[in-house]
Computed example of a mutant assay.
Amino acid sequence: MMETIYSSSTEIYNEEITYQNPLLFLKIFELINESAVHGIPDPWYWHCHKQVEFLIVTEGTLGIQTKDAYTLLEAGDVMVLGSSQPHRTHKYSAAPLRQIVFQVDLMQHFDLSAMPYLHCFSELTHPLESFNALFRQNAEVKRAAYDLILGIYEESQSQKLGYELAISAGIKNLLLLLLRNDNRDLTALTEDTGLSRLRPALDYVDRHLSDKIAVEDVCSKLGLSYHYFIKYFKKVMGLSFVDYVNYKRIKKAERLLLTRDLSIMEVSFEVGILNMAQFYKLFKRHNQCSPKEFKQRMRSQTSLTPALAQ
């Protein structure tokens, strides 16, 4: 099921994933395209979904664009797309294309034993897309991830006795592979984060991004003093409350620039930043380009410079 969020020349679809096994919170399937037709389609639509997506290519070449880059995936390549990250793909060459798409709600696979590592895979402080650099730089890790995803697919197809256990183990092993081979210092994130206690504050921010957000109003939602809340939030989330709000506002701005025909000023106001100089500064800090440059880059279909994944 696909729902159009905005109707424009750059429509983006919010895909509602129907799980093959509701207890595993995942959908994994193979796409085969043997047609000689290839190249960028017109129109070329964006889509997103709340589930994390892993892609592996078993034959041919897949072109994929995210907000960060246009990449070519060839046989043996692996790519991960974080939750709710817009992306679009196409068949790059006339040769047959075979790919496996693995969509999963990773958070559902963190049981009590794995919970201390939940924040190591946080979209807020450590976007999952950063693991793609690991796949590019470490052929052994890429191959291991490829084999694990392929194994999960094969188990889902065979549905032999205990396949649910095999799939759950495969997902845990995939997370372990990423965790142990990540070059970032994740030791500070392995303690219980208390994220559930902050949930009302995070939900409040999501609902009021277009408004002025006062720390005092958020504190009252949790029944915490101002100073305790500021320290507690930084400890749990790994960044300050102000930085978190700015992060969420810029992410919303990216989506508006991608999908709505609004001026830069209108986008700035829509995300609750009334000072244009501040909006430009924050946007450039997160994207290394201006909002105008971002909009032009993301809407361009003719100036894509492919980068090989390996």
Rank of each mutant, 00 (worst) to 15 (best):
M2S: 12
T4Y: 05
T10E: 12
I12Y: 04
Y13K: 14
T18Q: 07
F29D: 08
E30K: 15
E34D: 13
W44S: 07
W46A: 05
H47S: 13
H47V: 08
C48I: 09
H49C: 10
H49Q: 08
H49D: 12
H49F: 11
T61M: 02
I64A: 03
I64P: 01
T66W: 12
T66Y: 13
K67F: 00
K67L: 03
A69Q: 12
Y70W: 03
T71F: 01
T71Y: 01
A75D: 09
M79I: 06
V80H: 04
H87G: 05
T89M: 06
T89E: 01
K91D: 02
R98N: 04
I100M: 05
I100W: 02
V104P: 05
F110N: 04
D111M: 10
A114Y: 08
A114W: 12
P116G: 04
T125M: 11
S130W: 09
N132K: 02
A139G: 04
R143V: 03
Y146W: 13
D147A: 13
Y153V: 03
Q159D: 01
Y163G: 02
E164V: 12
S168K: 14
A169S: 13
N173D: 09
L174S: 05
L175C: 06
L178V: 07
L186Q: 09
T187Y: 08
E191Y: 08
T193N: 14
S196R: 14
S196E: 14
R199N: 12
Y204L: 06
Y204Q: 07
D206M: 14
R207G: 03
R207L: 15
V215W: 03
D217K: 15
K221Q: 14
L222Y: 04
I230R: 15
I230V: 14
F233K: 08
K235M: 08
M237T: 08
G238P: 14
S240C: 03
K248E: 08
K248L: 09
T259Y: 01
D261T: 06
E266H: 12
E266C: 05
V267T: 12
S268T: 12
S268N: 10
I273C: 01
L274H: 15
F279V: 09
L282T: 03
L282Q: 11
K292V: 10
E293L: 04
R297F: 09
R299K: 07
T302W: 07
S303G: 10
T305K: 15
